[in-house]
Design a protein around this nucleic acid. Structure first.
Ligand SMILES: [Mn+2]
Ligand SMILES: [Mn+2]
Ligand SMILES: [Zn+2]
Ligand SMILES: [Zn+2]
Lengths: 175, 175
DNA sequence: TAACCAGATGATAATTATTACCATCTAGGA
DNA sequence: TCCTAGATGGTAATAATTATCATCTGGTTA
């Protein structure tokens, strides 16, 4: 039974721990410890919902009614950058379509967002014949492997070894 | 080596096969076989890029310069509904944040989009110690299990057994 | 084949999520 | 306490997607 829902009772202790370390982590990341940032990470740590920015903003405003939605967006992005939060998927900016119906998964470059198909028969085997997961009825799955593609990896390496630090933007197909 | 890039040489044959069956599949789904739909699925089948609607539209317009972007969006959605295409992730509408940094994955209800944490130590083992994948440098991963939650599953069952067919919308946190 | 019409399309407006701006504020160091 | 780089709030701008609606057409029927 190597596939199960995470026990939600662990959350309060985990959240308390993380919150206690938060100010220190901000300083380590060169960030000011502002009341907004504290309020936002508190809401995030206490939630099991994997909330959107607007929901987090609404929750934060119960205590700090003045907080701006823009600040919530910025802060969440910042938290992800210093590794204090993550996004459920990094492919949330726009819909990406796939005509390949054979069971497969994807590698995604975290810089340029290029995507390639991969096969993981082992994974498919783990999930096959598994139709229940707690209160959920399983229908399918999709693994997203986070990676650096060759081009982006090369650029990162060059930058690190003293190459010209030319900044790079997310790849947008055709604009 | 149970984890590898899909061989791209298979694509042309696969695309040809799917295209040949396409008209038939449309009829089976009760859809008209329009030149726009054919052009769109062609582009999608020929692409390894997992393209966005705008990129697909641009490609289609090389042959049919009149096609509307709205039609491309609608058609892609339709193709997903009849199972002729899929989205790389179903969580593309907005960013969902997670404060839980322990390695874990997610079950997502395809109807209301609620998300819960799951653990799959076996999967983590498959990926651990795997740092290269073709030309990609692996950094991490995230599995998205598609499912029906208890509430949505119950509603679907009730509808099927003759309950009042009340339509249901995607859950939007707080609006 | 011609006439018909439900469903499909194109053009455009509206909506939603996110980011950009910029004037003002403040955390944290001197 | 004073100073300033960085943070915030309010709002405009951008980008992706959906809604609307007048017009068109694939596929069925006579
Ligand atoms: Mn794919
Ligand atoms: Mn999670
Ligand atoms: Zn890349
Ligand atoms: Zn649900």
């Amino acid at each position: 039974m190597e596939l199960q829902l995470v026990n939600e009772r662990r959350r309060p202790a985990y959240a308390a721990q993380r919150l206690a370390e938060f100010a220190e982590r901000c300083r380590a990341g060169g960030l000011a410890v502002t009341p907004q940032r504290i309020a936002i990470i508190k809401v995030l740590l206490d939630s099991a919902e994997h909330p959107r920015a607007d929901a987090i903003c609404a929750a934060v405003r119960k205590q700090h009614p003045h907080v701006s939605l823009a600040t919530v967006h910025r802060t969440l992005e910042t938290l992800c950058e210093i590794g204090e939060a993550r996004k459920v998927t990094m492919l949330h900016d726009s819909a990406r379509y796939d005509g390949n119906l054979t069971p497969h998964h994807h590698v995604v470059c975290i810089k340029c967002r290029c995507i390639r198909d991969i096969e993981i028969p082992q994974l498919d085997r783990i999930l096959a014949g598994r139709s229940e997961l707690g209160e959920f009825t399983v229908l399918g799955s999709s693994l997203e492997i986070h990676a650096l593609c060759e081009r982006c990896g090369a650029k990162a390496a060059k930058r690190a070894t003293g190459g010209v630090g030319r900044s790079q933007r997310k790849q947008k197909s055709s604009k």
